[in-house]
């Protein structure tokens, strides 16, 4: 395990949870955008897309493991917003609303996909190295191969905790599960990764 973890050294200046969460900390811009949508301003959809698409796409990608499905989820979230625009003003916290809708849609997509053949998840490496450190691309591929071994639920929680910097309580709130369940999934995911790292030659 030690040898393997040394193969993934920390690189400074990477895109981390801090950058990803910068737009997430304050709920007010999100509420303002939802209020605009509820008032009938369609152009707010574009600004909302710029704010939320990365997070929604990442969540759906880590849950479904398929870029096409993740793109479908993002589109569906925005379709839902367009359909339910009159009720958006009543949403207390748009951030949790968006994540919950994306999560439910991703679960539905995963269920549907189980009924049809799909490519193995490892075939789509979904971890990118920074442009300044292209040598890490191989590491990204290897890391994704390990992550792909986890269950979708564990992947989802690890994504939200590690990349989005969300607490277990916040994860539980957005996925609609108790905090304990979110923490438990994260812990089990870590244990599985530790095991996989230990068995990696």
């Amino acid at each position: 395990m030690e040898a393997m973890t040394q193969a993934f050294p920390a690189v400074a200046g990477s895109r981390t949870a801090a950058r990803w969460s910068a737009a997430w900390e304050n709920a007010e811009p999100w509420r303002a955008l939802f209020a605009e949508l509820a008032a009938g301003h369609r152009e707010a959809l574009g600004r909302l897309y710029d704010l939320a698409s990365g997070r929604l796409y990442g969540l759906a990608l880590w849950r479904t493991g398929c870029p096409e499905d993740a793109a479908e989820v993002v589109q569906e979230v925005f379709v839902r917003m367009a359909e339910e625009r009159e009720r958006l003003a009543a949403v207390r916290d748009p951030r949790w609303w968006l994540l919950s809708v994306a999560h439910r849609l991703a679960v539905d997509v995963t269920r549907r996909r189980q009924r049809r053949p799909s490519e193995p998840i490892e075939d789509h490496p979904h971890l990118e190295a920074p442009a300044s450190d292209r040598a890490r691309e191989v590491d990204g591929q290897r890391a994704w191969e390990l992550v792909a071994e986890l269950s979708p639920k564990q992947r989802e929680v690890i994504f939200l905790h590690h990349f989005e910097g969300m607490s277990h309580a916040e994860i539980g709130r957005s996925l609609g599960v108790p905090t304990f369940t979110a923490a438990s999934r994260y812990r089990l995911g870590l244990a599985a990764l530790r095991r996989l790292l230990g068995s990696t030659p």
Partner: peptide, 19 residues
């Protein structure tokens, strides 16, 4: 094990055409 494994890596961005 997650921190060293995923450090400096980032999840894929949505494709440009998706917007």
């Amino acid at each position: 094990p997650v921190t060293p494994l995923l450090s400096s890596l980032a999840p894929s961005e949505p494709p440009a055409s998706l917007r």
